[in-house]
Design a protein around this nucleic acid. Sequence first.
RNA 1: GCGUCGAUGGUAGAGUGGUCAAUUACAUCAGACUGUAAAUCUGACGCCUUCGGGCUACGCAGGUUCAAAUCCUGCUCGGCGCACCA
Length: 405
Amino acid sequence: MEKMLQSANMEKHERIELLLSKGVADILPSKGFLESLLLSGKKLSIYAGFDPTAPTLHIGHAIQLRKLRHFQDLGHKIIFLIGDFTARIGDPDKLSARKPLTEKEIKTNLKLYKKQASKFIRFSGTNAAVVKFNNKWLGKMKFAEVLNLASHMTVDQMLKRDMFARRIAEDKPIYIHEFMYPLMQGYDSVMMDVDGEVGGNDQLFNMLTGRTLLKQLKNKDKFVITTKLLEDSTGAKMGKTTGNMISMIDTPQDIYGKIMSWTDGLIIPGFELCTDYTMSQIETISDELKKGINPRDIKMRLAYEVTRSIHGEVLASRAEASFIATFQQKEVDQDIQTITANGRTFETILLEEGFVGSKSELRRLIAAGAVMNFETKEKMTDLQSRQIPHFSTYKIGKSRFIKIS
RNA sequence: GCGUCGAUGGUAGAGUGGUCAAUUACAUCAGACUGUAAAUCUGACGCCUUCGGGCUACGCAGGUUCAAAUCCUGCUCGGCGCACCA
């Protein structure tokens, strides 16, 4: 709330500066172009697209949403575009073809999306964000129209895309339909007749295709803002591959913990991309780090801030307390899962409740001394795990707790 | 269509008859340590096990062999080259 008031009190030129600099990787055709557009007083329409393939948005999406919010705060029209067309036909990109989503699933996802996104942009009140679906126009296109659209781009232009260039270098296949994806995304810009688009740096090519199409079909200069990706100086991404992907539906504890496990190099990018801190505040933090302050404490501030932006102050504070208790003081987490034994052996309970994937896995954990009765501090033996456990709290590894009663 | 090369575990990528549940790297998990669930070091990393071993896996289906990820045949899919370009 404080943050919102703060941003409401900001001067217009401050907001424009924030919009043009914070978390921004690139602005096309140029920063000056967009700046003069913003100063012209014209009401602009800007969109960002989201694929409804999963029921949740993650922290990467939030970067785009924050940027949209900057536009919204300046009184511009923002569009939250759902890429339901791709979801509906299924993305054949991977061999494990995604199943197309049904109408119903899309509706459910949409509700969840709106709810999650509403933490960052406003869907009600004055100048509310508009939701659009690209199936509305892409789903209706005739083949002749698709061909006509395709005639605006050459194969060579497509091949300039880094991903395609790499595939060719590696002798990997490129399917024709993959050429269509940038076109489809680009066509969204045309159909919505937007002034600009916001997206991750990895979406640059697709967004520029939209710029080309809009120029050719409507003689309009679309601007494109790419946001920085969340990665450290070595290029280590915070993403699915490293298992640190923060989803909007993660528990406060999980979000807090995942951020604490980020590598130190992500602290500053984290503040820039995932919080409402101003650039000068971030500067201050950067100085503190250089002075040798314990990065852990700064990271805790980041973890709190991000958790707060998703779950609010109360839950964020609790997550922080829980982290301190569990990992710094090695105490048991307050909110642990309680399971009734029901005559099952320890082994069976862990397996059935999903704490371990297989019995072999549990045996390995026991052999490594990772399973203990947290109250007596005794390490579990192989034999004990095959018996009905005593009522107690058990710890598996460093962060999994189970209370058996 | 012809020729040729290829398909391996979560990913990348070794292995070309037995010593292969499969080198290595990344990811993951655990232990130690600490500044933290960071970094670093160590270990584990298909499933089941009475810890002897058993079972299932190297695109799919068969075959050869005492023995196959490895050899043969067919199929599916892909790369490259050639042809086709109406």
